[in-house]
């Protein structure tokens, strides 16, 4: 099966039902995408497929064969830079385990909606759990990144 991850092609020998998160982590070797729940309940495994954020823990690898998958390791561009810069400046992460997913969700939001309202942020981020409850700084980070992109 052919997987396109971060603009590179990988040939993986995987059960078609294998969730994408395990294909990425165990077969491709990209461990920035995290396993949190296996049931689309927490968002830690969020990656982009053709630009859209998806939960890789419930997405069979066969469903994305041939599509462009982007993981945290492959994020590039102005929006990604603005988000990671804001995250670092505000010291958003605590344990950091959910933050790959948070950053992927935030980048998808800001790519589609460069000036999100708080309601836009709520809608985009409510599926991403953070047990350290860094939510307040995540919100501030998204607003700060948005301002950077404007300026």
């Amino acid at each position: 099966m052919k997987l396109i991850v971060n603009d590179r092609e990988y040939e993986v020998d995987a059960d078609p039902e294998m969730p994408l998160v395990w294909a990425l982590r165990d077969l491709v070797g990209l461990t920035g995408t995290k396993f949190g729940c296996g049931a689309a309940q927490c968002g830690a495994c969020t990656v982009h497929v053709d630009g859209q954020p998806i939960r890789s823990c419930v997405t069979p690898v066969s469903a994305v064969a041939g599509q462009k998958v982007v993981t945290i390791e492959g994020l590039t561009g102005k929006v990604a830079e603005a988000v990671t810069k804001a995250w670092t400046a505000l010291d958003v992460p605590q344990c950091g385990y959910c933050q790959s997913g948070q950053v992927m969700a935030a980048v998808a939001l800001l790519t589609a909606t460069p000036k999100p309202s708080d309601a836009d942020i709520d809608a985009a981020m409510d599926g991403n759990l953070c047990r350290c409850a860094t939510y307040q700084r995540i919100r501030a980070g998204i607003h700060q990144a948005s301002q950077t992109l404007e300026g």
Partner: peptide
Amino acid sequence: VRRVDSADKSTGRQTYTIDVK
């Protein structure tokens, strides 16, 4: 003074036990 680990944790570079290779 900022955290020592924010950049790694914002870019997927931080490794945890689950990531040990």
